[in-house]
Design a protein around this nucleic acid. Structure first.
Lengths: 208, 208
DNA sequence: CCATGCAGTTAACAACTGTTCTCTGGAATT
DNA sequence: AATTCCAGAGAACAGTTGTTAACTGCATGG
């Protein structure tokens, strides 16, 4: 049901995407607040003024990057949350999924980790918004779990946020170990699994 | 036993500190990777070239800021860790201490949260080093706790790191709520306490 | 008291930045 | 086929950046 774009709009989206990709690449070695618009257009091979046809500023581009990065993460969350099996199996699968996502989208993960507390207000707000949405989604899933019987709404949201934060921390740890030997990456996976397991144990005994 | 500095060295340290303070102020609205040396010297009211008498680059200044920011945090960690009382009392006291620290050193906390995953390699490394030191310290304290009997060394370190990360996340949450009404800040304290408590519960049932 | 050291100044540099206005070629519309 | 639209190019702007070199004045150590 996708409407085929005209040659015109297709070209535009193409250079827009090229700008986003170039920016994402440049952001591996700096923060958004130091990213220059000329830097980006130079990388793409386009005139500096062309930038304005797509974004008002680099901050604006940053917000677009947030949607791209966290949009691709959305389906992953659903997969983890919907996964069956006992607690330990689900945790191992979640860690495995996160590791895969970091391997296939390292720049996206780095961007989010970096700009979550970064120097650009609007981007921080965009990330916080998306993460709050994730937490809400996780919370809904948790509510359906029989383990959550008797939990208050606030505590469920607290736990959901804890899971989301944990997911990001794990992703960031995997990112740091991306170039490291397999042994090191396995150690990271081991630690991440233990963290999740400890939280799950706390969850099971919460109401005592 | 402090050696009284000559007029000369005293003046030097004074402007050095002024540079650090000015930088910290400017970093509330941007990231280190976009902080210019001229920007800092202008703020202090000193010639741009004077900067080089104290730091090789802004990245170098960033590393110095890490030591200042996390150095002041060191005693706080000890206080929390050495605190007596049952689990819930200790947690409440810890959250209270973190809240106070954020109120008295907001810029330091923001700087660490921002640059922990920021765009400047050397600063990231410095932060990671200090945090690893904190975790080691927490681990030693945990080892002495009877609750830890039977725990492996790896699991103790895992828990210690979890606590350290949690401390930072809590601090960051308090930071976001600094200007918010009391009611909001109390909600943050409530959530932080719950998180810590859940982790503690997980810890108590870890060996089952 | 005089010579040395060194924190901070002054001036100048080439390179870079974001933003403006004007222009152009080709797709889209009529 | 004629007209409008608009993504991108080009040139120019005032202002900024990091870094250099040579200086000045004052605290320091002999």
């Amino acid at each position: 049901m996708s409407h085929t774009l005209g040659i015109r709009q297709a070209q535009k989206q193409k250079t827009r995407q090229a700008l986003l990709d170039a920016a994402l690449g440049l952001l591996e070695e700096q923060s958004l607040s130091s990213l220059g618009l000329r830097e980006v257009t130079r990388e793409v091979g386009v005139a500096p003024t062309a930038f304005y046809r797509h974004f008002r500023s680099t901050a604006d581009l940053g917000v677009a990057l947030v949607e791209e990065a966290l949009g691709s993460l959305h389906p992953m969350i659903r997969t983890i949350v919907a996964s069956a099996g006992d607690s330990d199996q689900r945790i191992e699968r979640a860690v495995e999924l996160i590791a895969r996502h970091v391997e296939t989208h390292p720049a996206h993960v780095r961007f989010i980790a970096r700009e979550r507390h970064g120097g650009v207000q609007s981007v921080r707000a965009a990330i916080q918004g998306q993460l709050a949405q994730f937490a809400e989604e996780v919370k809904v899933a948790l509510t359906k779990d029989p383990v959550s019987y008797g939990w208050t709404d606030d505590d469920l949201l607290m736990l959901a946020n804890l899971y989301v934060d944990q997911m990001l921390m794990t992703a960031s740890l995997f990112l740091d170990a991306l170039e490291a030997p397999l042994e090191e990456r396995q150690r990271v996976a081991q630690v991440a699994t233990s963290r999740m397991r400890l939280i799950s144990i706390g969850r099971e005994h919460w109401l005592e």
